[in-house]
């Protein structure tokens, strides 16, 4: 789920253990929401430790991962379960609102524009963490 991309020329990935731990915490947050009944507070706890762990080790989260975490209350955003996403406005934009606290973020709907991480010329090479 968490994406691991190394921009170095060599195949060796620095801070490998950090990426593995971030990946595990992200999966654990998904598990807490899938429990019966839904345990929002536990998943908030896992995402909060994930955020602080990335901050301490100076590792940046991938923007696709970062956009699934509420900025205000650290809730994991899954459309239809913990958040709603609608297309509206004059320059068309998707509005994602968190159902826990009610904060919303807008993303412009432009077909031509792409994220810097999604462009194929910016990726040097992809390093897989589990070679077994």
């Amino acid at each position: 789920m968490g994406k691991k991309k190394g921009n170095q020329s060599g195949a060796h990935l620095q801070k490998k253990d950090v990426y593995q731990r971030l990946n595990y915490l992200y999966q654990a947050a998904h598990f807490a929401i899938s429990m019966q009944p839904m345990n929002k507070e536990l998943s908030k706890y896992y995402t909060r430790t994930m955020k602080t762990l990335a901050q301490k080790n100076v590792v940046r989260l991938h923007p696709h991962v970062k956009r699934t975490i509420c900025k205000h209350c650290d809730l994991l955003l899954i459309p239809g379960v913990t958040c709603t996403s609608r297309n509206k406005g004059k320059p068309k934009q998707t509005v994602v609102t968190c159902q826990g606290c009610g904060t919303f973020r807008r993303y412009l709907l432009n077909i031509d524009s792409k994220l810097w991480h999604d462009k194929p010329e910016n990726i040097a090479n992809v390093v897989m963490c589990n070679k077994s």
């Binding site: 253990d17 593995q20 595990y24 999966q27 654990a28 598990f31 429990m35 019966q36 009944p37 345990n39 929002k40 507070e41 536990l42 963490c129 589990n130 077994s132």
Partner: peptide, 26 residues
């Protein structure tokens, strides 16, 4: 408050399975 509501040992079975996979990978 949230933890006291669901304190069933069997419900945390997928978390234990996930952890053993993670440790084996490391």
């Amino acid at each position: 408050r949230a933890l006291t509501q669901n304190s069933n040992y069997a419900e945390y079975e997928p978390l234990r399975k996930m952890w053993s996979e993670y440790i084996r990978e490391v």
